[in-house]
Design a protein around this nucleic acid. Structure first.
Lengths: 247, 247
DNA sequence: CGTTTGGTTGAAATGTGTCAAACTTTGTGG
DNA sequence: CCACAAAGTTTGACACATTTCAACCAAACG
C-alpha cells in the first residue's frame, strides 16, 4: 500500500490508474511540450466562456471545476488532484461551459492542443486513454448528480469523502486512514448543494458517529466500511483499471 | 422552422447538430451494420453492471439514463431522443455505471463496438465527432448537477423544459411553441430530485405563471423568453454547432 | 366498464436554509 | 514574535421549502 515511485510523472501515474500504458506510450507522453506554471490559491485557471488553445494537467495541489450563475450560486462539479486534466474536453469543445479554479497553490502544466492532437494521431491508444479519461470524468458527474439529487446531507458528505479517499489512494497520495483534503466548509457546501451551516452540522454528525473527521484540511476515516455504507458508495463509477480500492 | 428532410437518418441528423460532416463521412455512417429492434415502453435497454459489446442509437421514441441504489432511490441523468447514442461510452468503459430504459415504445439500432472502432480508425474525424458527442453528454450532466444542486424547484423544471425544447428543435422535432415530452410527473421528479407531489404543484405554478404547460405528454411554451429566464437557461452547454436556438 | 396508472389537493411533519453572533484559527505586517 | 486582521468554524433561534401521508379524481386501456 506504499506510494508508487515518487519520480513517476503525475500524468502518467494518473493515467496508469485507468489505462495500461506501454513503455513507448509513456515516453511519448513525457515528450509532450509542457509549460509549467505555479499558481496561487483561489485563482481561476480557466473560465466559463474561454476558448482555450491548450489543456492543462494538475501536477501538484488541488483544483475544482465549478459553474456559477448570475445570482452568484455556485456548484462545484468535481475536485481535481495530481495528474488530472480537468479541461481535457476543450480539445473538442471550443467554448468552456465551466470554470476551473485552484483551491491551494498549484503547479500546473499547459500543453498546446496541437501537441495533443498530434500525439493522438501518432498514438491512437493514447487517444483512447484520453477519451477514457473524459468518460470517467463524466461518470463522476453522474455520480455527483445522484449524490445531490437523491442522498441525504449525511450521505452526501460521506460519499464525497469516500470518492476522494479512493482517488487519492489510487495515485499514492493517501494512507489507509488519512488524506489531505484542503477544502473549506463553504466549498464542501458548494459541492453538495447545501449551506455552510448545514455542512458544519453534518460534519459534526459524521464525527460523532465515528465515521470521518475533516480537520485542518485532513480527512481521517476511522471506519472505512461504515463510511462506505453511510455514503452509499460503490467504486464502480470510477472505472479504475485494477479496482484499486484499498481494504 | 420546418422539420429537416424526413429521409435523413436520425444519427446523421443528430450528429450534424454538433459536428460538420462531409458526404463521405455521412456515407460511412450509413454503411454501419445496424441491427434494428422495436422495444416496448418502460423496458431497460442496458443495465448498470452490463458489459456491452455493442452500442445503440435511439432511432424513434424516448429513453432516459438513470441510476438506482439499493434503497430504490432513482436519479434520472438525462433524456435521449432521436439520433442520440446514450451508451456510446461503453466503447471505452467496459462496465456500465448506469442504466438506460425506454419511456415510450422505441426503435433502436444496435452497432457492434468493433464496427465503430473500425470506423474510428478509418475516419478519424468521425471518431472526433463521437468523442465530441460524449463530451456534450458530460456537459449536460454538469448542467443537471447545477440544476439539482442550486436551482429552486420552479427553475429546475423550467430549465429542463428549455433544454428539451432546444434539443428537439435542433433535430427538427419541435415547433416554435410545442413539443412532445412523454414523461410522467414521477419521471420528472426523478430527474429533478423532487417528489411527485411537488412536481405536480410546481407544474401548476408554471402553468399559472403562463410560462409552460405539460399536458398529455406535450410541452407548450407560451412565452419562451420568460421561461428561459425563469429556468436560468443558457444554451452554451449544449455546444450546438450552429447555436441553433430558435428565437 | 372495471381496473390500473397517473394526476391533484390538503394537512401535518421535517430537513435544511436563513440570519446573526461569537469563537477559533490562520496569515501578515510591524 | 507579537498584534491585529481576515478567514473559517461553530452555535442558536427561527423561517420555510419540500416531503410525507392520505385521500380522491381523471384518464387510459384491455
Amino acid at each position: 500500500m506504499a506510494a508508487t515511485h515518487p519520480e513517476i510523472h503525475p500524468i502518467i501515474r494518473k493515467l496508469e490508474t485507468i489505462f495500461k500504458l506501454d513503455e513507448s506510450e509513456r515516453e511519448a507522453l513525457l515528450r509532450l511540450p509542457m509549460q509549467i506554471a505555479d499558481l496561487r490559491a483561489d485563482q481561476d485557471i480557466v473560465r466559463e466562456g474561454d476558448r482555450p488553445t491548450r489543456c492543462f494537467a494538475l501536477l501538484e495541489g488541488w483544483s475544482c471545476s465549478y459553474k456559477m450563475n448570475a445570482e452568484g450560486n455556485r456548484q462545484i462539479m468535481g475536485f481535481s488532484i495530481s495528474g488530472d486534466m480537468p479541461d481535457l474536453q476543450s480539445l473538442h469543445l471550443r467554448e468552456l461551459d465551466y470554470s476551473v479554479g485552484t483551491l491551494t497553490p498549484c503547479k500546473v502544466g499547459f500543453v498546446e492542443h496541437q501537441a495533443l492532437l498530434d500525439l493522438c494521431k501518432n498514438q491512437p491508444r493514447i487517444c483512447n486513454a484520453f477519451w477514457r479519461e473524459t468518460l470517467i470524468e463524466a461518470a463522476i458527474f453522474r455520480e455527483w448528480l445522484f449524490n445531490v439529487g437523491q442522498r441525504s446531507a449525511f450521505a452526501r458528505i460521506a460519499h464525497i469523502f469516500c470518492e476522494l479517499a479512493v482517488r487519492m489512494r489510487a495515485v499514492g497520495l493517501a494512507t489507509d486512514r488519512t488524506y489531505d483534503f484542503p477544502v473549506t466548509q463553504a466549498e464542501l457546501a458548494d459541492a453538495t448543494g447545501m449551506t455552510t451551516v448545514h455542512v458544519n452540522r453534518t460534519l459534526r454528525d459524521l464525527r460523532e458517529a465515528g465515521l470521518a473527521t475533516l480537520k485542518g484540511g485532513v480527512v481521517t476515516i476511522p471506519d472505512w466500511e461504515s463510511l462506505k455504507q453511510a455514503g452509499d458508495f460503490e467504486v464502480r463509477y470510477l472505472h479504475l483499471k485494477g479496482r484499486a480500492e484499498a481494504a
